[in-house]
Nucleic acid binder design. Sequence first.
DNA 1: TGACAAGGTGACCAGGCGGTCATATAATAT
DNA 2: ATATTATATGACCGCCTGGTCACCTTGTCA
Lengths: 212, 212
Amino acid sequence: MPKETFFNLQADKRNLIISVAIYEFSKADYNTASINQICKKACIAKGSFYQYFADKLDLYVYVMTSAIEEKIKFFSSTITEFHNLTLLEQFRFLFKKGIEFAKKHPKYAALGEQFSKESDETAKSAVIKEGNKQSETLFMQMIHNAKAKGEIDNKVDTLALTLLLQSLNSAIYKYMQDKFESISYEHNEKDINAFVDSLLYIVFNGIKIKTD
Amino acid sequence: MPKETFFNLQADKRNLIISVAIYEFSKADYNTASINQICKKACIAKGSFYQYFADKLDLYVYVMTSAIEEKIKFFSSTITEFHNLTLLEQFRFLFKKGIEFAKKHPKYAALGEQFSKESDETAKSAVIKEGNKQSETLFMQMIHNAKAKGEIDNKVDTLALTLLLQSLNSAIYKYMQDKFESISYEHNEKDINAFVDSLLYIVFNGIKIKTD
DNA sequence: TGACAAGGTGACCAGGCGGTCATATAATAT
DNA sequence: ATATTATATGACCGCCTGGTCACCTTGTCA
């Protein structure tokens, strides 16, 4: 956690530091990201930085957990209608919400993507200890409920489906990044939605020729 | 490409350097991996290293492309029987071959996994330029053939399925890593095969309740 | 006005990095 | 025995890193 001094800062300055840090940590992994660069871009002295944060890890954990909290907040705000939906609708809803989040908060999304690649174990576990793993249990619970309701094939392995869905998340993100490189957002919205529906079609119907 | 001096080296020394480099580059990303450490562990002087390789990138590209070549060699040796198989059997074959490869050459597999996370664009594109993208086109061709043969549902989007299958690859790798952390290989072989089959069951049959 | 606290600063530290180079050694050819 | 070539070496370079600290500025009370 940042020191008290940091929270006593003017909001403008505080926000600048955080947004610079988000940029730095989404651009490069933990070891490569540089405190010196963050200080320079945020126009603060090195010494000031260490009056706000205990060390590099302190800032990293703070920024990452903020992004996670933001995402949870974003999702939970519209999840009330959730139990009325079928599983297909729930999945589509989640994926589309995910895309929406990435479009609304591209910096947080990039941060999350960078975190999922992070190979520094110290940095990784420091963030995870701070409270995570929600998405896995969320998927599992959804699947469990749908099975109980007789909505999906009992032969489907819950864990396998969970990992599959998590994989799809990053596949969608990669697809988005490719599409969004230099073209306008609006223009690609249809493409991405179609891509999500294609993935969901496979997951629900399988790829085998149907007999009916 | 390494300099001539490197290839004039005794095989033992050459292999030691390479295996140390493989270890270093599979443990950490391109920027974090250290030439100094490689020299120390391979018992060669810094100056010697730069008589073998032009720079860090030279070694990186050499090691990565070696791993890719090794994997291609491993696959192509047993792929003759391929056209007799159904698509399901082909996919199962590929995934199981992948697992086999990771078990036989865990260091190459770890290297590949690290590469897929690499965020240094210079390092990444230097390797890709050296010849890659085979797996994507392989999957696409397989799907295309299967569609022509009427083996899979035409409503399935080829690109979506390709990205899905690539995602599954890394999902399987993660599952393996979890399982293999401290227990014997043999003991988990059944688990992993079952996991692969669970994934393939979903991909082929979908998760929806069947009417037949 | 003076005292005390809180915040801001950048030179400085030790250590690591990728990369160089003059020099030393070994092996070969004349 | 000498000259020539190929290889081995580690001190050294400039640069960057995360982190420290003595000093300076600012603001708030008395």
